[in-house]
Amino acid sequence: MDSVDDTAAQLAKGVSYDEEIQSDSCSFLVVIIDLHSNGWLNKSQISLWKVLESLTVFLNAHLALNSSNELAVLGFNGLGARVLYSTTTAGKNADANDIANGIHLKGTMIRQFKKFDESVLSSIKAQIAEAKAKNVNGSTSVSGPLSLALSHLNRRIREKSSMRGHILIVSASGDDMGSKYIATMNTIFTAQKLGVPLDVANFGPPKSFLQQAAEFTQGSYLEFSEKDAEGLVHYFCSTFLVEPAVRKYVNMATKSNVDFSAVCFITKKILEIGYVCSVCLCIMQEIPEDNKCAVCHSQYE
């Protein structure tokens, strides 16, 4: 007898709540801004202030997309890396000074954007001025702010399970990583492990390690020149604003021919075939004549 007993089928038919499509995940964006004055003055074709105009609109957009989105801005120059603004520490209470300061936009969300923009800009100006005053103009590597950004992200991701993080690096100086190669690579691998995309907006000369960073972590690497000056807002909002959870559904705009080649530690030439020391893993173009590794001085046989 063919009965109506299809209990199993009935149980399986539930509320088809397609979580992935409908649910919203919040994201924590960390923006790392290179504040080295000589980079922006000499190497970049667009001035820092023009970039900041578009960047602030981009930051407003990030906060507008989801009320639980969080943001942190880090700046780095000769003084080191500093947290310029962070939604986790910024007080959410409005202060009465604003009316006295003549901010005319009446109490709406737009007013909050305005206040936030001004706070970030003034912190940036302060950091640049301080570096100038102390005459600290040396270049620092991006491994510093990246480590700081990753530890902040780690804390928030542990506390709130639906939080995803992503990092945008705005870079202008042309310096190589130099002695911080290991530290920088460590941060890139950690970002890959945590699932944090590293986006790069490069206004200075091309840098291969940033391209590699974006490639490994499913981030976007874009280079900008003078002709892009008026369209910066559009580029920022369409590419860098895509949330990490959405990135697997879209094709991100990024530089496709990433340069993976190895560089000899001694002569700095690009290598296709080289020799790797089995002790310290340094890459050499050819075995030195005295049969000793140039870096770790271990004797080869």
């Binding site: 780095f76 000769g78 003084l79 080191g80 890396a81 600290v136 040396g138 620092t140 590597s141 491994s143 510093g144 702010p145 990246l146 480590s147 700081l148 990753l150 530890s151 780690n154 130099g178 002695s179 911080k180 290991i182 530290a183 460590n186 941060t187 950690t190 492990k193 945590l194």
Partner: peptide, 15 residues
């Protein structure tokens, strides 16, 4: 995970 100390990295010291 990171094998870096953020404090050491942030300071302008060369390793």
């Amino acid at each position: 995970n990171l094998h870096n100390c953020a404090g050491c990295e942030v300071q302008n010291t060369d390793v």
